[in-house]
């Protein structure tokens, strides 16, 4: 068995914000295998984003340890192992699609095959367009390309499709699946959508309210390659129901 990509070992995060102490992450232990697609789901504000920042080295754990490919998160950051995809793509408005895709690769001095990436996400012909000329879905595709352009082994995706309409969201999910199946990467994918998590992930981690803990990890044993049709299957429906039930327990706990 190969070495896991990411290991969170009894990780806790506390920080000060606006003068009050925030206990964002309670006690999280999980191991993410190389090339695994892991979905993180939980109530809003449960510290999912903080978990991604732990892996990218932007946040230090207050307790426990983060290991990325055998090293610390800080080492991983220096080796540029993580590509970030945000909910809003945060493109540079003064750069063209091409130049935005190239941005991170440019910073770390790596050559990027921009043309290939642009074709991969179906943006051919828009290379010279500026972000404001693109739809939200197209902008998010550029954001994805930017993360892929320097070919990091880990993709950290923070609700990347949450701001999009349903149809665009489904199209992009399908595209992400296709891309992930052709260029295997370890993906940590934060989402609010249960069907999205089940469709995309190998395992779905269900988290509690802040300070977040893991309620359960649901293994998604649906066959790959998957497509939208898989959503029609009874197995899919059962998994969705199981995740929903788990989430409901966290909600009930919150209400109580």
């Amino acid at each position: 068995m190969t070495e896991p990509a990411v290991v969170l070992d009894h990780v806790a995060v506390r920080f000060q914000a606006n003068g009050s102490a925030i206990h964002a992450v309670g006690d999280v232990t999980i191991s993410v295998a190389d090339n695994e697609f892991l979905a993180l789901i939980g109530p809003s504000g449960c510290g999912k984003t903080t978990l991604l920042k732990l892996v990218s080295g932007l946040v230090q754990p207050s307790g426990g340890a983060v290991t990325v490919y055998g090293g610390t998160a800080a080492q991983a950051r220096r080796k540029r192992l993580c590509g970030l995809v945000f909910q809003e793509p945060a493109l540079l408005p003064w750069r063209t699609v091409e130049a935005n895709v190239r941005l991170v690769a440019e910073i770390i001095g790596r050559r990027a095959n921009v043309q290939e990436l642009v074709e991969l996400v179906g943006l051919s012909g828009f290379e010279r367009a500026f972000p404001h000329e693109l739809s939200g879905g197209m902008q998010q595709r550029v954001g994805l390309c930017r993360a892929l352009a320097f070919d990091p082994p880990i993709l950290l995706m923070d609700e990347p499709f949450a701001a999009l309409d349903l149809l665009t969201r489904e199209t992009l999910s399908a595209e992400l699946l296709r891309i992930w199946e052709t260029r295997r990467k370890t993906v940590l994918f934060v989402t609010h959508s249960i069907p999205e998590a089940v469709l995309l992930a190998d395992r779905v981690v269900v988290l509690t309210q802040r300070p977040s803990r893991i309620v359960d990890v649901v293994a998604v044993d649906l066959p790959r390659p998957r497509s939208a049709e898989v959503e029609e299957s009874p197995a899919f429906a059962a998994l969705v129901r199981r995740v929903k039930d788990l989430l409901r327990t966290t909600q009930d706990r919150a209400v109580r």
């Binding site: 920042k53 932007l58 950051r77 220096r78 993580c82 970030l84 945060a90 991170v104 910073i107 770390i108």
Partner: peptide
């Protein structure tokens, strides 16, 4: 500077000049 731009640059150890 957009917070996410800063995070993006920090995540790959971009220099102050970059």
């Amino acid at each position: 500077v957009d917070r996410r731009w800063r995070e993006l640059f920090d995540s790959v150890c971009a220099s102050r000049w970059q």
